[in-house]
């Protein structure tokens, strides 16, 4: 009896969770003007439409640039800070760690608003650059936290052994620390990429003419339900899934000794 209830619950939960995505993907192939039932047949015209749309493709490229660029910067800064705090004795280290993860505790709306106010005070024009800098602010705490947590004692001993054998600090980082942290670096980078790829509010507040994909989709929403939105939404979904799958593939062989 409880067994039956459990499976029934599982089924209903999956229905609830997968229903909107199912509708999104299904009606992206709708051969008609509205992405709602009844399904009128399979057509790829909305994909063709979306892929031929200059603004959308420009936004897609912008998103990719901002996501990879801001993630690379966040990872690099996060790695250096994690290394400095894990391997050197600094006064007030606990306070420094707290400051570095502080942006996590605040909603992204507030991060974006603060930057918007400062930018307008300083007369800095809004662009992909300002949005990218905002993304680094959001992603840096995560990258730092992940990398700091992975700098365990095992690495420390390997680093000491390398120092013992005459390596300089730069050589230790290059030849020991970074290779040993590779899985954590890959995880931090791609987590950061997926978050940045989906990020809306900071991009919305900090861009003006060139926008990222979520902002472009947002402005398309004003014209209501459309299979075009389904098509671009399905494509964005596909990219995210591809990134996640890539991480799995990159990290799996990394587990070899």
């Amino acid at each position: 009896m409880t067994r039956l209830l459990a499976w029934l619950y599982l089924l209903l939960a999956y229905g609830f969770i997968l229903l909107p995505v199912g509708a999104l993907v299904l009606f992206s192939f709708q051969d008609g003007r509205l992405p709602v039932p009844p399904f009128q047949g399979v057509s790829l015209r909305w994909y063709a439409d979306v892929l031929g749309d200059r603004d959308l493709m420009a936004a897609l490229l912008n998103s990719a640039l901002v996501a990879s660029g801001s993630s690379a910067v966040a990872c690099a800064l996060g790695f250096l800070a994690a290394y400095g705090l894990a391997r050197h004795v600094l006064p007030g280290a606990a306070l420094l760690r707290a400051i570095l993860v502080l942006p996590l505790a605040v909603s992204t709306l507030i991060v974006g608003l603060g930057l918007l106010i400062v930018a307008s005070r300083l007369g800095v024009g809004l662009s992909l650059w300002t949005a990218g800098m905002g993304h680094v602010v959001i992603n840096l705490p995560l990258c730092f936290a992940i990398l700091y947590a992975s700098m365990g004692d095992q690495q420390r001993n390997a680093e000491r052994a390398a120092r013992d054998l005459g390596a300089s600090e730069g050589q230790v980082i290059r030849l020991v620390t970074v290779p040993m942290l590779r899985p954590a670096l890959v995880a931090a980078f791609f987590l950061s990429v997926t978050l940045s790829w989906d990020e809306f509010i900071v991009s919305f507040l900090l861009t003006r003419f060139d926008v990222t994909l979520p902002v472009e989709i947002w402005s398309m929403l004003r014209s209501g339900l459309s299979p075009r939105l389904n098509a671009i939404g399905s494509l964005v979904f596909l990219v995210s899934i591809a990134v996640v799958a890539a991480v799995e593939l990159v990290l799996r062989p990394g587990r070899r000794p």
Binding site: L19, V36, I217, L229, G233, I241
Partner: peptide
């Protein structure tokens, strides 16, 4: 499977609920 839609974009996820809940949407048609 239980977290698959996690990877849809934030804006897109809300939009896809519109497909389900709007006047002509999946739920009402059903």
């Amino acid at each position: 499977l239980a977290v698959l839609p996690f990877w849809t974009s934030y804006v897109v996820r809300s939009y896809s609920w519109l497909l389900v809940l709007s006047k002509q949407g999946v739920v009402n048609q059903a």
